Amino acid sequence: MQQTREINALFTLIDDPDEEVYATISEKLVGYGKGIIPNLEHLWETTLNEDIQERIEMIIHRLHYGDLVHDLCEWRDSAYHDLLFGALLVCKFQYPDLHTTPVLQDIEKIRRNVWLELNSFLTPLEQANVLSSIMYNYYNLKGIETQYNNPDDFFLHKVLEAKKGNALSNGILYQVMCEQLEINARIINIPQQCIIAFYHSDYDPATYKGPIQDKIHFFVDGTSGQAFSHADIENYFKRSSVEPSQAYFKPKSHKRIIQLLLSELSKCFTRPSNEYKQQELLSLAELLDQ
């Protein structure tokens, strides 16, 4: 890199005990952009002091985070908010060096296996049964209770790797499959659940003005792929003492799904040492409102 002398001078001050001095040094280093990361990684490898290593790790994290903010803003401002790409951006919060090609290959394998079993004569319920059978039986995807002690449960590439995910991550994968297979099914807004509604082929949320339930064939639980009837959903509302609303049956936009994923993921970082990650994730979620 250019300005190597200045960078080396800044490196010698990373261990300064004065927090204000360190803050100034870290800001200058972050200002060099991602190109400085190899230098920082080399410094980390040749440093024995754990406190200095932590400071280096934080500077590297800030550099990756700045890139993620830029990429997420580009995704937000694009004409089409690709759900899979948005979910992979969330993965890069914790895994900034993630190579997406293996993930896309895994998803393509599942899509192709489902596609081979589909034909134009199947009913929507039969389509759902094929998709659920491939994902949850043949591919052995497991649904687990949503907990906040393992962030990997929210990262799509880790869900594919471990073949287990919570309701939201499995639901996102299910919707991605539906979109790639041109099945009109979307995650909806039912509180505390990740439910996918299978809509009539002519349903367009931008133009349809009648009762949305009339345009829904049935529902699928994103956790397990199990199908639910309208009566099942009505019973859920009764048990939860929640008044059904038309808004609950509208499809969530891709931006809102990714916003929810960021918000839920932030709940995994409540320890004092990780609170900065929680705030960063909530800031990323807020970016999608702008």
Rank of each mutant, 00 (worst) to 15 (best):
Y248G: 06
Y203E: 02
L173F: 12
L260T: 15
Q278I: 01
E286V: 02
G86M: 07
L284V: 07
S132V: 04
Q147T: 11
Q213G: 07
V30S: 02
D18P: 06
I59W: 00
D106K: 11
D152S: 14
N113R: 13
C178A: 11
I258E: 03
Y248D: 06
A23Q: 13
F249K: 11
S273I: 08
F249E: 10
E45L: 11
R5W: 07
E145A: 09
D16Y: 13
D51Y: 03
F93Y: 14
W115S: 15
I196S: 03
A206R: 13
I36Y: 03
T146V: 10
Q226T: 12
V220D: 03
T123W: 05
E19V: 12
C178R: 03
A87H: 04
D202G: 03
R186V: 04
H70Y: 09
V242E: 05
L104E: 08
R5C: 05
V159A: 03
S120E: 15
D202Y: 11
Y236K: 13
T100L: 10
L118D: 13
S263Y: 13
L104V: 00
D214M: 06
Q290G: 13
V159E: 04
E41R: 14
K158S: 10
L181M: 09
Y148F: 15
K209R: 15
E27T: 10
L287Q: 08
E6L: 15
E50M: 10
E45N: 12
I258Q: 05
E234S: 14
K255L: 15
Y174E: 06
M1A: 14
H42L: 07
N150R: 15
T12E: 08
